[in-house]
Simulated assay, not measured.
Amino acid sequence: MYLKIHKQGDGMVLAACDQKLIGSKLKKGKICVEVTESFYKGDIVSEEKLMEELKCCVNANLFGEKVINCAIKCGMVDPDTVMIIDGVPHVQIYRV
Rank of each mutant, 00 (worst) to 15 (best):
M1E: 02
M1S: 11
Y2Q: 15
K4C: 08
K4S: 02
I5P: 04
H6Q: 09
K7Y: 13
K7S: 09
Q8F: 13
Q8I: 12
Q8C: 04
G9S: 09
G9R: 08
D10L: 15
G11S: 15
G11E: 15
V13F: 02
V13Q: 08
L14E: 03
L14G: 00
A15M: 08
A15E: 00
A16K: 00
D18P: 07
D18T: 05
Q19A: 12
K20S: 12
K20H: 11
L21P: 13
L21Q: 12
G23R: 05
G23E: 00
S24I: 07
K25M: 11
L26K: 04
L26H: 01
K27H: 13
K28Q: 13
G29T: 11
G29Y: 12
K30P: 06
K30Q: 11
C32T: 15
C32Y: 03
V33S: 08
V33W: 02
V33C: 08
V33H: 13
E34F: 02
E34C: 03
E34W: 00
V35S: 00
V35N: 10
T36L: 02
T36E: 08
S38H: 07
S38I: 04
F39I: 10
F39W: 15
Y40V: 05
Y40S: 03
Y40L: 14
Y40P: 05
K41R: 15
G42D: 09
G42L: 05
G42H: 09
D43L: 12
I44C: 02
I44W: 00
V45R: 05
V45H: 10
V45G: 03
V45C: 06
S46V: 08
S46N: 07
E47T: 14
E48H: 10
E48N: 05
E48V: 13
E48G: 06
K49A: 05
L50W: 10
M51S: 14
E52S: 11
L54D: 04
K55C: 12
C57P: 01
A60R: 05
N61D: 10
F63H: 09
F63K: 00
G64A: 10
V67E: 01
V67F: 07
V67D: 05
I68P: 04
A71F: 11
I72E: 04
I72W: 04
K73N: 11
C74R: 01
C74S: 11
G75T: 06
M76F: 01
M76R: 12
M76N: 06
V77C: 09
V77W: 03
V77G: 05
D78Q: 06
T81S: 14
T81H: 14
T81Y: 14
V82Y: 01
M83S: 05
I84G: 00
I84C: 00
I85G: 07
I85T: 09
G87T: 07
G87Q: 04
G87P: 03
V88A: 09
H90E: 02
H90I: 06
V91Q: 12
Q92V: 03
I93A: 09
I93W: 08
I93E: 02
I93T: 07
I93H: 06
Y94M: 13
V96S: 13
